[in-house]
Design a protein around this nucleic acid. Structure first.
Length: 295
DNA sequence: CAACCGTGGCG
DNA sequence: TCGCCAAGGTT
């Protein structure tokens, strides 16, 4: 009856069992962490490594334990508390989300994916992550880790292509039927990509599904498409904006324009970046012409 | 859809 | 040393 060639359980169940033994003990995964704290963690984790998020997340959930608390904070406070996590517009949008939660959802975090996606800074990934990890709703959750896992495991390709709507269906097809296990599967797939099925040197020797991996069964072929281009940073507006904002974060109050000259020597680019920070609401100009974080 | 939006650690 | 990469979202 038992065919030894057929695995005892599905890939999804195997990943859940692996997760139970191999998962990291991350603070936002502990029992009792509410959906708001999960939402904060998910926004911070957008393009930012776990190690840098942890201390900032602890500070935020202690200081602003509910959406109403954050909604009452000033942009300046929020930008300062964001520190050097990067992409500081996320901090602004998180505050705007807190305001929207107070105004539209009675200060609570909705469990409905469409309602979550309507919030500023909350997209396809984060909405499902909050519904799933924050509220325990079974949802396919697709981040860069999961797309890489699916590309290899299911499609036999070395790398994931550009994100597509079909990614959600690919992941949903792997999920266990059981509701509770489906929720854990969503974290498990991400964890596999973060710890084992990593981008550069995958640790196939310790992979729980190595015997069912299409990429490995195909002989681990190299990526075929054109090499994906990495964004430059040195000398870009992103770097300049970061330097300018760093000056203002470190200042007690408003600073004169001359205080920003040291941040970046080239005046044209410096001016353009200052303008864009003003347009983004990350900086404001005082009546006397100085610059500061928005009060 | 490709470009843009920060920052820092690691191989 | 320096390019690669990290729980994306918006335009």
């Amino acid at each position: 009856m038992d065919d030894p060639a057929v695995p005892a359980s599905g890939i999804g169940d195997t990943l859940v069992d692996w997760y139970d033994t191999a998962a990291r003990d991350l603070p936002w995964r502990r029992p009792g962490v509410d959906p708001w704290a999960v939402l904060v963690s998910e926004v911070m984790l957008q393009q930012t490594p776990v190690a840098r998020v942890e201390p900032v997340w602890h500070a935020w959930v202690a200081r602003w334990p509910t959406p109403a608390d954050l909604a009452a904070a000033s942009p300046a406070e929020v930008i300062r508390a964001w520190g050097k996590l990067g992409y500081p517009r996320r901090a602004l949008r998180l505050r705007e989300t807190a305001v929207a939660l107070v105004e539209r959802h009675g200060g609570a975090v909705p469990a409905d994916v469409a309602a979550l996606e309507a919030l500023p800074g909350i997209g396809t990934y984060t909405a499902r992550a909050v519904a799933c990890f924050g509220h325990g709703r079974p949802q396919p959750v697709v981040d860069t880790n999961v797309r890489r896992v699916v590309a290899r495991l299911v499609h036999g390709r070395a790398e994931a292509g550009t994100a597509r709507a079909a990614d959600l269906a690919d992941v949903a097809a792997l999920a266990p039927a059981d509701r509770d296990r489906a929720v854990r599967f969503s974290v498990a797939a991400m964890e596999l990509g973060a710890l084992v099925c990593v981008a550069r040197t995958p640790r196939c020797a310790v992979c729980p599904v190595r015997d069912r991996c299409a990429w490995r069964l195909a002989g681990s072929p190299a990526a075929d498409g054109p090499p994906r281009r990495v964004q430059r940073f040195a000398g870009t507006d992103r770097q300049v904006r970061g330097r300018l904002l760093d000056v203002l974060r470190g200042a007690e109050g408003p600073v004169p324009a001359s205080a920003l000259d040291d941040a970046w020597g080239e005046a044209v680019q410096r001016g353009r970046c200052l303008d864009s920070l003003l347009a983004d609401g990350l900086v404001e100009q005082t009546a006397d012409g100085r610059f500061a974080l928005p009060a």
